[in-house]
Design a protein around this nucleic acid. Structure first.
Lengths: 142, 142
DNA sequence: GAATATTAGTTGTTTTTGTAACTAACAACA
DNA sequence: TGTTGTTAGTTACAAAAACAACTAATATTC
């Protein structure tokens, strides 16, 4: 172990700074275009990506607390982006499903995310991009 | 540009997940040991790293809003980790300086940060560590 | 099958953050 | 000098997050 550790290189700090920088612009987009909060976008994207899920499944997969998901689901429902469907077999569960409008918003935001991601990594070469994502996934242990 | 973009690979999302994971344990440490909030730790570390600074300089360097810094400074002052010194030349500025206790806390937290950082990157090889930090700095444009 | 435990999800209350308006000190320039 | 502008930092109020307590449905266990 070398002794050249500088607190400015502290990984949680760098990660946080990078995450903040990266989020700002996209956040502005979904906020102004769809009036969404970050957790709402997260829930939307999980439903768009994986199809119908319960709130609990979203909590697990997105690593969000159930109260945050609960409130985001309510907000998305009010915006008519999703509907709930109670399961007959176990009435505690409710399946969440995007409406047409929700799917349209997901499509729009995904396309924007893709463009945004490309711009963010424009200065990185393919190897760096690969390593960056791998490292991030490992640290997040996803 | 390939067409295989998966929203799960969206960089702001990965960054955020990684940042959250990375922060949790360390956060628990400074919270339980010194009763600090994240912004307080940030301010402390800037003062420890760069010596006496004004609140404004911390804002710029740490990219924190002045209200956050203002509150963190007040909290750190109450914990006797720093003192303020008004400048005679321009009484709007106040130089912030760590007390002995503040320096001790900084030393403790820096050592812990170093251990923590090492653990976090234990599974990465030197090249990956290098690339990861470079990419993060670039994205954060530090 | 009644008592207890668990699970999914909600609601209420407290912290923390974000935004904007404010004060006090200084600067610039007529 | 005195009006206007700018800067450093604080305070007040609104939005959001964190945490704990709750309800309702199902499982478990005796």
């Amino acid at each position: 172990m070398t002794d050249e550790f500088d607190i400015e290189d502290f990984l949680p700090y760098l990660l946080n700074q990078a995450a903040d920088s990266a989020a700002i612009e996209f956040q502005r987009y979904y906020k102004s275009r769809f009036g969404m909060l970050r957790t709402e976008w997260r829930v939307l994207f999980h439903l768009g990506r994986y199809g119908t899920m319960t709130a609990k499944e979203i909590c697990t997969r997105a690593r969000l607390h159930k109260t945050k998901v609960s409130r985001a689901v309510t907000a998305l429902e009010q915006k008519r982006f999703l509907t709930r469907q109670e399961m007959a077999r176990d009435r505690r569960h409710e399946h969440l499903k995007l409406t047409k409008a929700g799917q349209a918003a997901f499509a729009d935001l995904s396309a924007e995310a893709k463009r945004f991601d490309a711009a963010l990594t424009a200065k990185l070469n393919p190897q760096e991009r690969q390593i960056l994502r791998n490292c991030l996934r490992q640290i997040a242990n996803l």
